[in-house]
Design a protein around this nucleic acid. Structure first.
Length: 901
RNA sequence: GCGCGCGUAGCUCAGCGGUAGAGCACUACCUUGACAUGGUAGGGGUCACAGGUUCGAUCCCUGUCGCGCGCACCA
């Protein structure tokens, strides 16, 4: 028995448990051993994360695909897991230590700290997994993986060592994006450019041996302490004479050259630019070209490092040096203020212009990133990018929607070396060991490294391991095969790689998709996924990106509590149109919650009317027109939904299902079936009960990928009567109907629907009270009369008619309407205002005239007649005939009205 | 600067070369025997603007205006 109302919260956890207990989501079920595999790897959420709207959308779409294909009989693996999120996790644990006033990371030491992280992971790392379950995600949780798992770590080691040996990983000293708060290097992608209101400071640099100055402009005056040149454009007439001369760096006293370099843009600033090779990416390049010294003036925390800094002190001198040295240890922002003051005091500041510019910030720490000279490990991304580019160009992997391919190409074609080392503790420690002379040995284990070192030195030497760990994305890049067991040759790897589709957001194409392509193609020699479905971002209803600071986040879990997981899922699916962001309004979720209720009530209706499932029911055997009609409509709906999901058109699939269930099944089939279900005719009644139950089952199956909970619940409850279920709905067979489309049934039921709608419409226009029953006279015979007799009861009830009679001509003074070319009359003489009726008919005629004119205009156009395709021409002519005919009938009606007056 | 996308009913969005659709909101009516988380009927759109292609353009092309996003640059 079904409860009176649908209460999602009550059933969701129970249903989910049942799925897990029966192993419904397990891949490799024995009965599917010969089925085609279908695999998706989840974009591993951050282990510190909790479910946000983006996850909800991403996983809803994956779940729709997984459930759909599972029902189509495929051996589905939806591979779940989380990534270890190096920086984020380390930050979380450090914060926790601080809050609990426990010793910090450095006091505790690396080993102890890592133990603490694992403890934290054991306690809190499963949060998002449980949230995914609340959403209904049908992952094979037995196979859950974590990027720091033993197996996945082995994969990371092997990949690092092999790429190193192939020359695709190397160590290099160059400028990196340095995070002075987290004290680690980060990759280009982890840098956010943020618009900042700053100034452009114009500073006079005195030219050696003269009273003249050259003016340079800068947004970072404090870096002048590390200047080693001033650059001007070689063609800049203003400065031509100065090239080759030197300037005396103010405050520092260092003698630095004026060089000619095309990097200098005469249009910008003063046309002369200070060069600080150790603190600016462009200056670094200029420095290389002119063989300039690199003077690093910052500590790793971006505080001034001057006193004990040989590079800085070399060549420094003069009256101001002491004051400058007093700034040793000052934070970069304090240093800036102090330098500005000193320059102003010496009248070297020419002007200060307000200047809005982009400043790089760390996406985790939110502090200004410092270009910083360090040794780091790099992946030769340019070489690694070659195959991934080819694979998409030749269609081995397809992006959906296609236009994202351009983004992918643009990035890979202009790719920079990927900095993969991080100065953190939490992560995969780099398998590199150094000998006493700094010689590096990269190997799978310490013993292997020792053996290599022994070979190199001819004896055992003490080795120290590289302290750094790898970028989390390095291990994520291996996800599609490391989760399947690689480097072991597991049966799963063989069966499920390459995966069928990757579903992800566009913001992660660079971070993840491209890198998985690199690693997959390099190590597996095959693309990691055939399709990449890129979905939109979920925004708030005004279109703003959801963010905590804006306070506009919508919590999917709250929505699930409020409306049920099914409603949230259906909303996201219905709004997931390709290539468009989702602006989510709660009202939509509410609307689809109502949809769930509607389905529930339709099922209750079936239950109350004895619509039990009949074993072996053959839809082709249906005799009743109504049943033929709904089966025909069901076949169409199933086809639409199926084709839409196959094409990743989730919104179309959801829309087609919605329309069929609500506008066809509930609005019309249920209503029209009432006379049959309550009538006496045994055979027709039994057939209708069986059909209703059958179609409801089809509906439940059709909706299951979108609304797994309510459908599974109904499947179970409905399974209690009639033939026993063979399995849970999650493993049931996807609906497939054919040969049921029936034009005759459509014609008859369509007429019934049109007649009822037309009568209702007139009633409203004529202000006939809802409770008032009125007679209807059909000016028709033959088939129409037969139809009307067959549908007498339904017509009377749904159109609120007292009786239906038949006549040759309509009675005088009646309201006349046109239904599928025939006249129906409501004899309302005396009840209705004849003037109102006249004007109603005149309006109808005007509409017909407009139609006729529109078509005539087209038909008068010789080009149209000559060039338009035949079927369009026919269509237009038919429209004209229809309009003419309608007009004729209405004119007659108008005549009769006059007769009545 | 380069690239991508968007401007369709009051709001959130579909559609897309042959007479504009949905949900929500709105108006009126309805406790009819699944459902008021419901039903019925209705109002509301020069499909941003200007050119062009076409027999025909909301849909294709070009440009303009407005908005968003990504990348790059920034002295």
């Amino acid at each position: 028995m079904l409860e009176k109302t649908y209460q999602p919260a009550e059933i969701e956890s129970r249903i989910y448990r049942a799925w897990e207990e029966t192993g419904a989501f397990d891949c490799g079920r024995p009965e599917r051993a010969s089925a085609a595999p279908y695999s998706i790897v989840i974009p591993p959420p951050n282990v510190t994360g909790s479910l946000h709207m983006g996850h909800a959308l991403n996983n809803t779409l994956q779940d729709i695909l997984a459930r759909f294909e599972r029902m189509r009989g495929r051996d589905v693996l939806w591979q779940p897991g989380t990534d270890h999120a190096g920086i984020a996790t380390q930050m979380v644990v450090e914060r926790q230590l601080m809050e609990r006033q426990q010793p910090g990371r450095r006091e505790m030491g690396r080993e102890k700290f890592l133990e603490r992280v694992w403890e934290w992971k054991a306690e809190s790392g499963g949060t998002i997994v449980n949230q995914l379950k609340r959403l209904g995600a049908s992952c094979d949780w037995r196979r859950e993986r974590f990027t720091m798992d033993e197996g996945l770590s082995r994969a990371v080691l092997k990949v690092f060592v092999e790429l190193y040996r192939a020359g695709l990983i190397y160590k290099d000293k160059r400028l990196v994006n340095w995070d002075p708060k987290l004290l680690t290097a980060i990759s280009d992608l982890e840098v956010q450019q943020i618009e900042v209101k700053g100034n452009l400071w114009h500073i006079k640099y005195p030219i050696e041996g003269s009273d003249e100055f050259i003016v340079v402009a800068t947004t970072r005056p404090e870096t002048m302490l590390g200047d080693t040149a001033v650059a001007v454009h070689p063609d800049d007439e203003r400065y031509k004479g100065l090239v080759g001369k030197n300037v005396i760096l103010p405050l520092v006293g260092r003698r630095i050259p004026i060089v000619a370099d095309e990097y200098s843009d005469p249009e910008k600033g003063s046309g002369a630019v200070k060069i600080t090779p150790a603190h600016d990416f462009n200056d670094f390049e200029v420095g290389k070209r002119h063989d300039l010294p690199l003077i690093n003036i910052f500590t790793i925390e971006a505080k001034l490092s001057l006193k004990n800094n040989e590079d800085f002190m070399k060549g420094a001198g003069g009256a101001d040096l002491e004051e400058v040295l007093a700034l040793d240890g000052a934070d970069r922002f304090k240093a800036r203020k102090a330098i500005i003051e000193m320059l102003e005091a010496r009248e070297l500041m020419v002007k200060i212009e307000p200047n809005v510019h982009m400043v790089p910030h760390g996406d985790r720490s939110n502090v200004v990133i410092e270009p910083y000279l360090t040794d780091q490990w790099y992946v030769d991304a340019k070489t690694m990018a070659r195959e991934p580019l080819r694979a998409v160009r030749d269609g081995r992997t397809t992006f959906i929607p296609k236009n994202w391919e351009k983004t992918y190409f643009d990035w890979l074609e202009n790719i920079q070396p990927w900095c993969i080392s991080r100065q953190l503790w939490w992560g995969h420690q780099i398998p590199a060991w150094y000998g006493p002379d700094g010689e590096v040995f990269v190997a799978l284990s310490e013993s292997e490294a020792k053996a290599e070192a022994n070979k190199h030195y001819g004896k055992d030497e003490p080795l120290t391991r590289d302290e750094d760990v790898l970028d989390t994305w390095f291990s994520s890049a291996l996800w599609p095969f490391s989760t399947l067991g690689w480097p072991d040759e597991t049966p799963e790897l063989k069966r499920f790689y390459p995966t069928t589709v990757l579903v992800t957001g566009f913001d992660i194409i660079f971070f993840w998709v491209a890198r998985m392509m690199m690693m997959g193609l390099h190590f597996m020699k095959e693309v990691p996924f055939k399709d990449v479905y890129i979905h939109a971002l979920v925004r708030d209803e005004k279109g703003a990106k959801m963010s905590k600071s804006k306070g506009n986040v919508m919590d999917p879990l709250e929505l699930i509590d409020q409306y049920g997981a099914d409603a949230l899922r259906f909303t996201l699916a219905a709004m997931a149109a390709q290539g468009r962001d989702i602006k989510l309004a709660t009202s939509r979720v509410e609307g689809y919650r109502n949809f769930a209720t509607k389905i529930w009530n339709a099922a209750r209706f079936a239950e109350m009317n004895g619509a039990k499932r009949v074993a072996g029911f053959d839809p082709k055997s249906a005799k009743e027109t109504l049943n033929k009609w709904i089966l025909s409509e069901a076949e169409k709906a199933i086809r639409e939904v199926t084709e839409a999901i196959e094409a990743y058109k989730f919104n179309e699939a959801a829309g087609a299902a919605y329309r069929f269930v609500w506008s066809i099944f509930c609005d019309w089939y249920v209503e029209l079936s009432k006379p049959l279900l309550t009538g006496a005719n045994g055979a027709a009644k039994a057939e209708t009960q069986a059909t209703a139950a059958f179609v409801l089952d089809e509906i439940i199956k059709l909706l299951h990928p979108f609304m797994p909970f309510i459908t599974e619940e109904l499947w179970q409850v409905k399974g209690e009567e009639g033939a026993p279920r063979g399995s849970m709905l999650a493993l049931a067979q996807w609906p497939k109907l054919s040969g049921l489309e029936n034009a005759n049934a459509e014609s008859e039921i369509g007429w019934v629907v049109d007649l009822i709608t037309a009568v209702r419409s007139v009633r409203m226009e004529m202000n006939i009270a809802g409770g008032t029953q009125i007679p209807l006279q059909l000016i028709a015979g033959g088939e129409t009369k037969a139809r009307a007799e067959r549908w007498m009861e339904a017509l009377k009830r749904l159109a609120r008619l007292s009786e239906i009679t038949f006549a040759e001509t309509p009675p005088k003074g009646s309201v006349q309407l046109l239904v599928r070319g025939e006249v129906a009359a409501l004899p309302l003489a005396g009840v209705v205002d004849l003037d109102a009726e006249r004007s109603r008919l005149e309006k109808e005629i005007a509409k017909c005239d407009a139609d006729i004119q529109r078509v005539d205009k087209k038909l008068e156009n010789k080009d149209f007649v000559a060039r338009a395709p035949e079927e369009i021409l026919e269509l237009e002519k038919e429209r004209r005939r229809d309009a003419e005919e309608r007009k004729g009938k209405i004119l007659e009606a108008l005549e009769r009205l006059k007769g009545a007056a």
